[in-house]
């Protein structure tokens, strides 16, 4: 195994080749279903990698990703929805914004910035909470954001949801973002910043002895994670063309936690592999559900699989390690 390990640069090239090969193959197949599935899987990879930074590096237990995704999604849609239809779909929208049309990468960036700002604001209040207290607070946040989305129907059409969101999220855009986000999180982990985050996770008191400001690092990880979640949330409705307050909820929060726990908290390679595995697994199970008519089996099987997995490997697949890649 040691001899097969790649250097970080080789691993990066491998990742680029793999992602672009996958996208070329899927586009070449001309199969819309495969294209959508690949897009959703790559977004899951981004979400998992960013959550393994927020939670895995610092030892926090945030479930808040879906809340920030919802924010990013609605904000981005404000700028990408066809101008002609904004008037009746989003009557509360101020005229100034209603006239603006942005291409998706820009709109998603605006969504990400708004989500990151909200993450920073909320993070200031919650990141000092330990373990399950933070989990409960962020769980509450998902519900608060969903309730806002439901009731701000002048912007969101409430429970009816927004349909006809332009399908502008190309596979290439998603692929490039996936690579960039993986590289970003990798660089953070292997820089002094990431090392300090890991130190906070290992021993907050000792970290403070060396001038490491635990609160600021946790807030930074929380804010960055919120921003990336906002960006992913903004991409998703532009893949499936609909958005509703229930699009990103508790089940997604659970699935994301399952992914990073299986991958090993803090392992980027682990998060990527687990995201691929769980995406493919739950999609196959969904097909089984549809053909047999027994719905809800997916959640049960994922939950049972997670528990059994943790009985065997409590630290996840890889713990903190990055298998197959040499440390530089």
């Amino acid at each position: 195994m040691k001899n097969l390990a790649l250097s970080p640069l080789q691993a990066f090239l491998f990742l680029v080749v793999l992602v672009s090969g996958l996208i070329l193959a899927v586009i070449g197949s001309g199969n819309g279903y495969f294209q959508t599935f690949t897009a959703l899987t790559l977004i899951n990879v981004m979400l998992a990698v960013s959550l393994t930074m927020t939670n895995g590096f610092t030892g926090m237990f945030s479930l808040g990703h879906p809340a920030f995704m919802t924010m990013g999604a609605y904000v981005a849609i404000l700028f990408t929805y066809p101008v002609g239809r904004k008037g009746f779909a989003m009557p509360a929208l101020p005229e100034v914004i209603a006239q603006i049309h942005l291409p998706l990468p820009l709109a998603a960036t605006v969504g990400a910035l708004v989500a990151a700002f909200m993450g920073w604001l909320i993070g200031r209040l919650v990141v000092h909470l330990q373990t399950h207290y933070l989990a409960v607070a962020t769980l509450g946040l998902i519900i608060v954001v969903q309730t806002f989305a439901l009731n701000l129907d002048g912007f969101t059409r409430g429970g009816r949801g927004i349909t006809g969101v332009p399908r502008e999220a190309s596979l290439w855009l998603i692929g490039i973002c996936t690579v960039l986000i993986i590289v970003l999180c990798w660089r953070i982990k292997h820089a002094s910043l990431g090392r300090a985050m890991l130190a906070v996770r290992e021993n907050e008191m000792a970290a403070r002895c060396f001038g490491i400001d635990a609160f600021r690092l946790k807030l930074l990880a929380f804010t960055l994670g919120a921003g990336i979640a906002g960006f992913c949330g903004a991409l998703l409705p532009h893949v499936v063309s609909v958005m509703s307050p229930k699009s990103f909820g508790l089940i997604l929060a659970f699935n994301l936690i399952a992914i990073i726990v299986v991958g090993g908290q803090g392992s980027i390679v682990g998060a990527i592999l687990a995201a691929l595995f769980i995406s493919v697994g739950s999609e196959s199970l969904r097909m089984v559900e549809e053909s047999t008519g027994v719905y809800g089996v997916t959640q049960v099987i994922v939950a049972v699989a997670l528990i059994s997995f943790l009985l065997v490997r409590p630290k996840g697949l890889f713990g903190l390690k990055e298998p197959l890649i040499r440390s530089s």
Binding site: S192, R195, N203, M205, A207, F210, G319
Partner: peptide
Amino acid sequence: PEGRQIFGRLSIEENLQLGAYL
């Protein structure tokens, strides 16, 4: 600090590097 409080899951080298965080 009391009780050594090293960063157990990080390597020795990483522990030492963290001493010079600032």
